[in-house]
Design a protein around this nucleic acid. Sequence first.
DNA 1: CGGTCGACTTGAACACGTTCAAAAGATCGT
DNA 2: ACGATCTTTTGAACGTGTTCAAGTCGACCG
Lengths: 238, 238
Amino acid sequence: MATPRRSRRAERGPDTVHRVAKSEETRSLIVATAMRLFSEKGYDRTTMRAIAGEAGVSVGNAYYYFSAKEQLIQGFYDELSHQHLTASRQALEGEPDFGTRLKTVLLTWLDVARPYHRFGTQFFVNAADPESPLSPFSVDSTAAREASIGLMREVIESSDVKLDQELREELPGLLWLYQMGIVLFWVHDRSPHTKRTRMLVERSVPLIARLVGLSRLRVLRPVSREITSLIRDLAKQD
Amino acid sequence: MATPRRSRRAERGPDTVHRVAKSEETRSLIVATAMRLFSEKGYDRTTMRAIAGEAGVSVGNAYYYFSAKEQLIQGFYDELSHQHLTASRQALEGEPDFGTRLKTVLLTWLDVARPYHRFGTQFFVNAADPESPLSPFSVDSTAAREASIGLMREVIESSDVKLDQELREELPGLLWLYQMGIVLFWVHDRSPHTKRTRMLVERSVPLIARLVGLSRLRVLRPVSREITSLIRDLAKQD
DNA sequence: CGGTCGACTTGAACACGTTCAAAAGATCGT
DNA sequence: ACGATCTTTTGAACGTGTTCAAGTCGACCG
């Protein structure tokens, strides 16, 4: 790493509202070229010089638009989550069962992400850095995160699942966390066609559904209460 | 990253059994210097040239002993897990309550890891790469992982917790996974003194303990069964 | 028209992790 | 003592991500 790092976000003047329309063209040309090369040769093996060269701009110019190579990945995330959202919504149509809905969302993600598994893991590594804007927990990812959590909310709300108000509010966040776990497993999954991840989804979703259903049971009520309360308290400060 | 990557493990002749005693000195001098500089200036800001310079060897020589800068972190992990194991065993002495034992192990880890939180996160990022030998799931980490899981087994076995055979076998692995989750949270925790992680431990451990206790309940029996069965099936192939 | 200002563009230069051919020691059989 | 063979050591050189002083271009003002 020949990087000074820690040079995040000093910019962002009052011009955040409007993007300059003119250079948007160059910008998207660069990101498109980058995405193509990434999927052809992988992240590590694609050099900034190659990206700039193929896009017909200078290296310095690429850095005028993107403050780091890593930031080019953002385009990948955006594309992926957009595809996931629309494909999921379509697949959810008319399905009332909570478990089936949850499974659909997760399997849809696996389908959408499939083409990127080969090289995608290199992307996701960057996301593990707490300092990185690419981290799913970062402030910069707020929009994408909210969208994903919103999808989980839809999974719950249009289903026939019964649960008390408290859990209903916190469950989307918990399910999103669960999904992050699945993604983590997927990244490490080396089985053909990521068969093991599919198995994990197929069999863990019914477990989740069962537990959610049982949460209203007298014995589990305090547990469920404490979980939601804990989540809230953790979210408080910071 | 100026790295070709993917050059892991081609070495390892039949000489793995014995280390040559002679150069062990240079080797440990390098790793000691590296650890010192890492904790002084952080991982990213410590250059291989600086490490080699301070250790009084050439850059190339450092690479004769360690195939990459990343590999120098291994020393950090070894140190950390050794400290954790011994400190935990001592703290566990004579304590029969399962929840208390589990909490002790986790809080001990937080104590031991505390000095490294400032820079340590940079270490843990590397561990997220599935290809990296530093990943807690990698083959290279088997020994350390087994040791940690073994500690969780001790937590269970010398406690008064009641659980059926099946879960007793798989629970250590599950608890280790739980611990990895705590570590992940810790890495992202920016609260003073990682107060939030401590809160998470203090309040999630009783939940775990409660759930483990409830697992023998009639309604939860199938859930518990399916979890252990799933874990086993996932471990099968590969 | 001249001039100024801001957005954009350039490519050489920098610092870094890593490699490698070559040199220097070390060990050992004869 | 001498070569042979292995281990250890060296530092220049390479490819990389990133920076920056300098340039180009267009729009707008007088």
